[in-house]
Simulated scan of single mutants.
Amino acid sequence: MKILLPFDGSDSSYKALGYVKEFVAGMSEYEILLVTVQKTFMPTPPDRPYIEIMPDDFVAETIMHHEYGRVHLNLLSDALKYLNGFSHSRIRTYVGFGHAADIILEMSELENLDIIIMCTHGMGAARRFTLGSVTDKVVHHSATPILILR
């Protein structure tokens, strides 16, 4: 099972991490794709607006020196600490560049996901209308099954 888990460091995203820990318990085959998204531009390969971050990867060093890169690498590091005890060979970490919903939708198409697990942030209807909702957009445009947690 290939699972996409968007992570932004909020209480809701930690809740989703906790759920994923329970969700994969007992599964013999799974892969968790953990993604955090920054809105600033960063050069990425032309075929996708996100990059995989590997330990000791030169690209990670490049991001670390970018204005917001350190924040996103720290978010991924915190998420991995929370998932301590999981085989890191089953967790892949990514930083996306652009709007979160667009990155999630693109990853769902390009990575052949089985499910997206994400939380809502509990916006009211008026705020969601003016700001847009990542979860709302993903739900309405994804062909991949989505599990939404509140």
Rank of each mutant, 00 (worst) to 15 (best):
F86T: 04
E31G: 06
A100N: 03
F86A: 10
F23Y: 15
G122S: 10
A60D: 07
E67G: 00
V35Q: 03
I117K: 05
H99G: 02
M27D: 12
D102Y: 00
P45W: 12
Y30K: 14
I117Q: 06
C119Q: 12
G69S: 05
P46V: 07
I32C: 05
N112D: 15
S13V: 07
V95I: 15
L83A: 05
Y94R: 00
P6I: 00
A101W: 03
M1W: 10
L113A: 06
G18P: 00
I115E: 02
S89A: 13
F7G: 03
H88N: 09
P49W: 07
D78M: 08
D8R: 09
V95F: 04
I115A: 03
T120W: 06
M27Y: 15
V24E: 08
Y50S: 04
L4H: 07
M1C: 09
L33G: 01
G69C: 04
E61F: 07
L17C: 14
M1G: 11
M1S: 14
S28R: 14
K2E: 15
A101R: 05
P45R: 15
I3R: 03
L105W: 04
F23R: 08
D47S: 13
I104L: 08
L83W: 01
V37D: 01
H65R: 12
A16T: 14
Y94N: 04
D102C: 00
S12N: 15
L113I: 06
M118T: 07
I3E: 03
Y19N: 11
L110R: 15
L83M: 13
T36G: 05
L4G: 07
D57L: 04
S28A: 13
I51R: 12
S13G: 10
M107Y: 02
E29D: 15
T93A: 12
S87R: 11
G18R: 13
D47M: 09
S10K: 11
S77E: 12
G122W: 04
E22L: 10
E111V: 04
D78I: 01
E67V: 06
P6A: 06
I32K: 07
V71F: 08
G69A: 04
I115G: 00
L75A: 02
H88T: 13
H88C: 02
Y68I: 02
P43Y: 06
L105E: 01
G26W: 14
A25C: 11
Y50H: 05
A79K: 05
P55V: 04
L5G: 06
E52L: 02
F41Y: 14
E22N: 14
E61A: 11
E31R: 15
I115S: 05
T40E: 15
A25V: 10
K15L: 13
T40K: 13
S89P: 01
A25T: 13
A79W: 00
S10A: 07
T120F: 08
S10H: 11
G96Q: 01
I51Q: 12
N112S: 15
H66D: 11
T36K: 07
D56F: 07
D57N: 11
V20F: 02
S108W: 05
L4K: 09
